[in-house]
């Protein structure tokens, strides 16, 4: 299958996504410059991490107006898989393909560290290969990763099982200490209503080989591959 990796000016995890998808998982991958609009031939669209447009104005606020984003919306409306990682999650929220926003971390510092994600929903195309409750060791790297939405949205997300991952301890307990940025209810990743758009702050593309400290990120790519 073929992954399309969108590149905005300022994107940087495009290369890591390419490496983990192509070199580690053995799948086809192409870069899609943000001014392109043709996504034909792609089976999954990846919005990678980075600082699109320098995060100026507000994270993802400028990138959502890039020409490629209309095509990404169309792609998602057809029920095809779209995954936004870190800045990609922020772009998806700004584009209203996912609800809520990512605010500045509560401690007002950038944070790069390992996190332990509890898989809350293992029925999405992105998590189907996880066991329910499985803990994935995947790192974060962001300044604006505190997931926030109003009470009704949070309630809807939780009632409809749309929280894909929460920050937890290595054994999967959801605690305040395990929350690296102050995200509401330790939310690390969510899916849209239809379940085909995932946004997550942690970087699965950084944890696809044991030599890098974890290969748990592969489970997400492999789940997508199995779902197509």
């Amino acid at each position: 299958m073929k992954f399309g990796i969108v590149v905005f000016p300022g994107t940087w995890s495009d290369r890591d996504c390419y490496y983990s998808i192509h070199n580690i998982c053995g799948q086809d991958a192409v870069y899609i410059w943000h001014k392109e609009t043709n996504l034909s031939g792609c089976d999954c669209i990846v919005l990678p991490g980075g600082f699109s447009y320098g995060d100026y104005l507000r994270t993802g606020a400028i990138a959502r107006f890039s020409p490629v984003m209309d095509s990404v919306a169309d792609f998602s409306h057809k029920g095809r898989p779209v995954i936004g990682i870190c800045n990609g999650f922020q772009v998806l929220c700004e584009a209203h393909l996912l609800p809520g926003v990512l605010r500045q971390n509560d401690h007002l510092q950038y944070r790069c560290q390992w996190t332990y994600l509890k898989t809350e929903n293992n029925t999405t195309p992105f998590t189907a290969k996880c066991k329910k409750g499985q803990v994935l060791k995947i790192p974060i790297s962001h300044y604006e990763g505190r997931y926030y939405a109003d009470d009704s949205v949070i309630k809807e997300l939780e009632d409809t099982d749309r929280v894909a991952f929460r920050y937890g301890t290595p054994s999967g307990e959801i605690t305040k200490e395990a929350n690296p940025n102050g995200a509401l209810n330790n939310i690390a990743g969510i899916v849209n209503k239809r379940g085909n758009v995932l946004g997550m702050m942690p970087h699965p593309e950084r944890s696809c080989e044991d030599i890098l400290g974890s290969s748990d990120g592969n489970i997400i790519w492999e789940s997508i591959i199995a779902s197509i």
């Binding site: 940087w12 995890s13 290369r15 890591d16 490496y19 983990s20 510092q109 950038y110 944070r111 790069c112 560290q113 790192p139 790297s141 970087h203 593309e205 950084r206 696809c208 080989e209 030599i211 890098l212 400290g213």
Partner: peptide
């Protein structure tokens, strides 16, 4: 150093 992105690039073996 936790304020620096030390893993981007998929190369960092010893943090």
């Amino acid at each position: 150093y936790r304020q620096y992105d030390h893993q981007v690039g998929d190369n960092t073996v010893v943090l």
